[in-house]
Amino acid sequence: MHNVVDVPPRGPEDLAARGLTEVFAPALLAAVMPIVIGVHSTTPVSLGLAWALVGALCCSVIPNALIWWGVRRGRLTDHHIRVREQRRTPLIYGLVSVLFGLVLMIGFDAPRPITAMVVVMFVLGLAVTAANLVWKLSIHAAVAAGSAAVLVIEFGPQLLFSIPVVVLVCWSRVRLDEHTVSQVVAGSIVGLIVSIPIFLVLR
């Protein structure tokens, strides 16, 4: 069993880093992104919202519930799964949940932009799962960068302000000693090379 001790924030920068880590956690972004895309891209909005909630359920709520269950049972150190060796099983279960959502969306002809967003989440999940078998790639950075890229594609250049947010998320992970610079840079690159072509082609 790996023991990871939470170190209390030591000052304003650590508090800011902890806040960024929690606000832009992969689970939260995975819940919010399908809703943002669904509401913006689908008419009537109620249809987009309904399918977006299915996406949020399968991409975030179910996988995150499984992680919290693992934490409560003592099988995982914390909800961010800091120990790389513990990540494989939760990531695989998360992939199964996202795949189930995709099957529903394709089978019942969900709006294309929402389906495209969930495909991005699934392929990104595959990529980070494979990488984390051997290296602690930053999932925070990957999901943040992928989400920012999708927002720019969907809404246009006015959403370029999301890029500095990705940089801040990466900074927060390094500041908290959860990742190295190379791990957050690699995560960001993976997020971009997965999300941009997939969302452009499928939306």
Rank of each mutant, 00 (worst) to 15 (best):
M1S: 11
M1R: 11
N3H: 15
V4D: 03
D6Q: 14
D6T: 05
P8I: 03
P9K: 03
R10A: 05
D14Y: 05
D14G: 07
A16P: 00
A17N: 02
A17Q: 01
E22C: 03
V23G: 02
V23S: 00
P26F: 01
P26R: 01
A27H: 06
A27C: 10
L28M: 15
A30Q: 15
A30I: 04
A31V: 12
M33V: 11
M33W: 14
P34F: 01
I35C: 11
G38P: 10
G38T: 01
V39L: 15
T42E: 00
P44Q: 09
V45R: 01
S46K: 12
G48Y: 11
L49G: 06
A50E: 11
A52P: 06
L53S: 01
V54Y: 09
A56N: 04
P63A: 06
A65P: 00
L66I: 12
L66G: 02
W68E: 06
W69Q: 08
W69H: 08
W69G: 08
G70A: 05
G74K: 08
G74R: 13
R75E: 15
T77C: 07
D78C: 05
I81R: 00
I81Y: 04
R82S: 15
E85D: 14
E85P: 00
E85K: 07
Q86G: 04
Q86T: 05
R87F: 04
T89S: 12
L91A: 01
I92A: 10
I92W: 14
S97P: 12
L99Y: 06
L102Y: 08
V103D: 07
L104T: 11
M105E: 04
I106G: 09
G107M: 14
F108G: 02
D109H: 14
D109E: 14
D109I: 10
D109R: 12
P111I: 00
R112A: 14
R112P: 06
P113G: 01
I114Q: 10
T115M: 12
T115V: 03
A116M: 02
A116W: 08
V118Q: 12
F122K: 13
F122W: 15
F122Y: 11
V123C: 03
G125P: 07
L126E: 02
V128A: 01
A131C: 13
N132A: 11
V134F: 14
V134C: 11
K136W: 09
S138Y: 04
H140A: 10
V143P: 06
A144I: 09
A144S: 04
A145M: 13
G146F: 12
S147H: 00
V150A: 03
I153T: 05
I153L: 14
I153Y: 01
E154V: 02
E154H: 08
G156C: 13
P157D: 12
Q158K: 15
Q158A: 15
L159K: 06
V167Y: 09
V167Q: 05
L168K: 09
L168M: 12
V169T: 09
W171D: 00
W171A: 00
S172Y: 07
S172K: 01
V174Y: 05
V174T: 09
V174C: 09
R175W: 07
R175D: 05
D177R: 11
T180W: 01
T180C: 03
V181Q: 10
V181E: 08
V181Y: 13
Q183K: 03
V190N: 04
L192A: 09
V194R: 05
V194Q: 06
I196C: 09
I198E: 06
F199S: 02
L200D: 12
L200T: 14
L200P: 08
V201C: 13
V201S: 15
V201E: 15
V201T: 15
R203I: 01
